[in-house]
Simulated scan of single mutants.
Amino acid sequence: MEQSLFYAPDIQPDAAAYTMNEDTSKYCIQVLRHEKGDSVLLADGRGHRFTAVITDDNRKRCSVSIRQREQMPAPSPALRIAISFTKNASRIEWFLEKATEIGIQTIIPLVSQRTEKEKIKAERLQNILVAAMLQSKQFYLPDLQEPQPFEKVVNSNDPQKLIAHCLPEQKRELHQHMQPGKDTLILIGPEGDFTPEEIQQALAKGFEPVTLGNTRLRTETAGLVAVTLMNAKQREL
């Protein structure tokens, strides 16, 4: 039987025991119906995988005994995406969930000239990332950064820098242009796309223009296509 995985952000690497918070305890004991003696897994979001056994099946403060700790290998190379958040919050929440499931290490809310939503509900979005990490049985939680202005992000020193835009300029398909084995940052613009000035600014900073296909995509769809293609390219190694 597959072991259930729970989030334990405050667990210490050398812990011998751990007590889940009330929400996690309720889900573990009341919803999943685990009981004393059951084996479960814990993830701290930083790559540690804990194998544990329930010692107290209290639904408000479930306690476990740690039997084994493993440091899972970090995803490499790192994939980062800077994406303008949409005015419709549900669309970007969908993107965060799916991008986490597929595999992304860093998400930067990008504030460009045409960005319509500059403020984010960090706690809610963090909860979405955690749920997606657990659902997909991963042990590294993506780093959701604070919103950053376009001018700052384009000064990134990532080894491989890409920008997806809609202007009819010469571009290569992402999967043809991207080189596997390199840490990569891709920029995805707002619903009205990047301005021509922003595109030129990015190109001057070493970003390579790429296309994600022949159809015009919504921001969140473009982000998900980019994450999917980047992961597929990295698996070619």
Rank of each mutant, 00 (worst) to 15 (best):
K119H: 13
T86N: 06
I104V: 15
E93L: 09
D44M: 07
K117R: 15
F6S: 02
K36N: 14
Q145Y: 00
T86A: 06
K98Y: 07
K137A: 14
T86W: 07
L110M: 11
I104G: 08
R46A: 13
V40T: 12
P9V: 07
R67F: 00
V31A: 15
D23P: 00
I66S: 08
I102Y: 12
A74L: 08
M72Y: 02
I54K: 06
A89E: 09
E97F: 03
E116Q: 14
V64F: 01
K137S: 15
I128Q: 05
V31G: 15
R124C: 05
A132L: 09
H34Q: 12
T106R: 14
L42G: 08
T100M: 11
L41W: 10
I107P: 10
G103K: 07
R59K: 13
I83E: 04
T24W: 04
L144S: 13
I54Y: 12
I104H: 10
Q105K: 03
E70Y: 00
T86G: 06
T86L: 06
A16P: 02
R124K: 14
A99R: 05
K87M: 03
M20G: 04
E146D: 15
C28E: 08
K117T: 08
Q113R: 10
L134N: 05
D14K: 13
I11V: 13
C28M: 13
P109K: 02
C62S: 01
Q126D: 13
W94H: 12
K117S: 11
I11N: 06
A15Q: 04
I107A: 10
A131L: 01
A89G: 00
S39Q: 14
R46P: 01
Q138M: 02
P13I: 06
Y18R: 02
Q68M: 02
L134F: 05
N127M: 07
R61Q: 13
P142A: 03
E101M: 04
L41K: 12
I104L: 14
I108M: 06
I54P: 08
Q12L: 14
L42F: 15
Q145F: 02
E146M: 14
Y7V: 01
K60W: 00
P147Y: 09
I120S: 09
N88T: 13
I11T: 05
G47D: 10
E118C: 07
I66A: 07
R114G: 07
D57H: 05
I102T: 13
V130Q: 06
A52S: 12
I92C: 04
I108Q: 05
E22M: 14
E35V: 13
W94E: 10
L96F: 15
D14L: 11
V40A: 12
A15W: 03
Y18V: 03
P109W: 03
F139T: 00
S84H: 03
Y140W: 13
I66H: 08
Q148K: 15
H48P: 09
V111S: 07
